[in-house]
């Protein structure tokens, strides 16, 4: 994997003048369509990001500023690279041997692809929730406390009890706080020692969010977090995402465009070919997109 940071003059061609064809239309992507201006600070800055899977150029020269404490939705047809992009934000793509990543992704000003980055710490600060709920086959309490214990934030083992370093109170506090933030506490507070697999799908997904929150992240990446859930469970997850954005930076990949419209503050549209075509206020994207291809995609004329 290369850690090269490309600058404007080194780029092989000018991506801002690139003309691409998707569906039946052809258009030149204008730089202004991808420059999102917002008040406040940027939590994640991406520039010149290219990802190859072997010969497949999955992401092409992506640049994005992701505002803190807000919800950013990534939408686009299958294969457009939005999940690849999401995984680049906490280096989950490192686990894919064929992935070659160039460019820069900065979290709080530090390039996460730079030398000496502590991946464990990075993924603690930039957590991820996946499409299918994936609780451990352990109790609800253990699911939530697993991360803090692994990271050494709480100690509750036999040896710790023997040596008087038992941190059970802190564990219970983290478990309750995380479950409350994930809007699950009231539903499970009397059954914390039951197996997490006994929960419904929607509850399992909120448990996974609580597990993510327990290690005190800053950014939460979500890859289709409600696509496997029924409408009621989906609504709870959507409410939760909006609440989380008061404290965390949330980036959500979704195929459900109405969900993106409902929950996000800003939306980035990726289209086939691994390109970011438009990025802006969600209102603007869904009411008056600049790109005809984005218009065609979100109105369902192709994709």
């Amino acid at each position: 994997m290369s850690n090269t940071t490309l600058n404007e003059t080194e780029r092989p061609d000018d991506p801002d003048e690139r003309t691409t064809t998707v569906g039946e239309s052809e258009e030149t992507i204008q730089p202004s369509w991808r420059q999102y201006h917002f008040d406040g600070d940027s939590k994640i800055s991406v520039s010149g990001l290219d990802v190859h899977y072997g010969d497949d150029h999955a992401l092409k020269d992506i640049g994005m500023e992701i505002p803190e404490e807000s919800v950013t939705a990534l939408i686009g047809p299958s294969g457009c690279g939005k999940s690849t992009f999401l995984r680049c934000l906490n280096r989950m793509n490192d686990r894919i041997r064929a992935a070659e990543i160039d460019g820069e992704v900065s979290y709080d000003g530090e390039n996460i692809y730079g030398d000496g980055v502590n991946l464990v710490e990075l993924r603690k600060r930039v957590g991820m929730v996946f499409q299918a709920p994936n609780p451990f086959p352990k109790s609800i309490r253990e699911n939530v406390s697993y991360g803090p214990r692994k990271h050494g934030d709480i100690r509750t083992g036999f040896f710790d009890r023997l040596t008087g370093r038992d941190d059970r109170e802190q564990r219970d506090r983290i478990v309750e706080e995380s479950l409350r933030k994930a809007a699950l506490w009231d539903e499970v507070k009397d059954r914390l020692d039951e197996n997490a697999l006994s929960l419904s799908g929607g509850q399992q997904q909120r448990l996974c969010i609580a597990r993510c929150l327990a290690v005190d992240p800053d950014v939460i990446l979500m890859d289709e977090p409600a696509s496997a859930l029924d409408p009621i469970a989906t609504a709870k997850i959507e409410d939760l995402i909006e609440q989380l954005a008061e404290e965390y930076t949330v980036v959500v990949v979704t195929h459900n465009m109405q969900q993106a419209a409902r929950i996000s503050d800003q939306t980035a549209v990726f289209l086939t070919g691994g390109e970011l075509v438009e990025y802006g206020d969600t209102d603007q994207i869904f009411e008056n997109p600049n790109s005809d291809r984005v218009e065609d995609y979100i109105t369902g004329k192709f994709g």
Binding site: M257, Q258, A261, F286, E287, N288, P289, V294, E295, I298, T299
Partner: peptide, 9 residues
């Protein structure tokens, strides 16, 4: 149908 963009307008 939840129209968006030009359809919504």
């Amino acid at each position: 149908q939840q129209p968006v963009a030009s359809d919504l307008r």
